[in-house]
Design a protein around this nucleic acid. Structure first.
Lengths: 125, 125
DNA sequence: CGGTATCCCGGGAGATACTG
DNA sequence: CAGTATCTCCCGGGATACCG
């Protein structure tokens, strides 16, 4: 199967599939939260401390969205002080692989892309 | 190599790699333009007619960014009326594969995710 | 035909303060 | 500890009008 045929998967139905997934994971924090949860369950504060720069508000929003999508499970323990554990669901774990593929692509091609940008910006074309 | 080890690729250096690529392709149109250019070269108007809903302004912006990143080449023919052809570069074509992997994931898990959302929204937990 | 230039709006996202 | 509430700024992106 050529990439030409395969790329129809992206364009399919006017791009609704790709739009859906980008709405889901294309924001600033979602993939970082997912990657951080790849491993043992973490509490809210652990999650926050492992993701430099994320605000309490954005972490809350992000995990709520992920929970709604069924990619992350949230468990509240009735203790004082409260304890809440987050964990990837089985479905959530399946996202890791394509996400890593994308990260690999980024790492592999970053130098090249930055060179291209520098050339473009110089106007040297 | 476990996904646990691999997911470090995503988190690496505080997530700068993933942030970079999402800034690059995580917007509304970029991946659609790339997928549409997987195949023969297309002119501006052809590109626009194949991507339902994209405005002239956004198509221009998107192809300019892609050109700057070295993922798309832009060729102007000195004719009247003007003709401009867009085409994926070799680097641009390498992006198709991981992008398709992501699209596949979206297609595979969409039903499941929508079910989860429906349940969540009902409050049934 | 293949663009720019300009205006405008909605929502993503940070900072800060408060709460069960 | 693990959130919610509120305010605010910023910018992606659509609509429209004009240009070489």
């Amino acid at each position: 199967m050529s990439t030409y045929e395969r790329s129809c998967k992206i364009r399919g139905d006017g791009g609704r599939a790709i739009r859906g997934i980008l709405d889901r994971i294309g924001d600033k924090w979602t993939l970082l939260v997912v990657a951080t949860l790849d491993g043992p369950p973490l509490r809210f504060s652990e999650l926050q401390s492992r993701i430099p720069g994320i605000s309490q508000r954005m972490l809350t929003r992000t995990v709520r969205h992920l929970e709604r999508d069924g990619l992350v499970s949230r468990t509240v323990y009735a203790e004082v002080p409260p304890r809440v554990q987050y964990e990837l669901t089985a479905t959530g774990r399946t996202l890791i692989e394509p996400a890593v593929a994308l990260a690999d692509w980024a790492i592999d091609h970053n130098p090249e892309i930055e060179r291209s940008q520098a050339t473009y910006d110089t106007g040297t074309a």
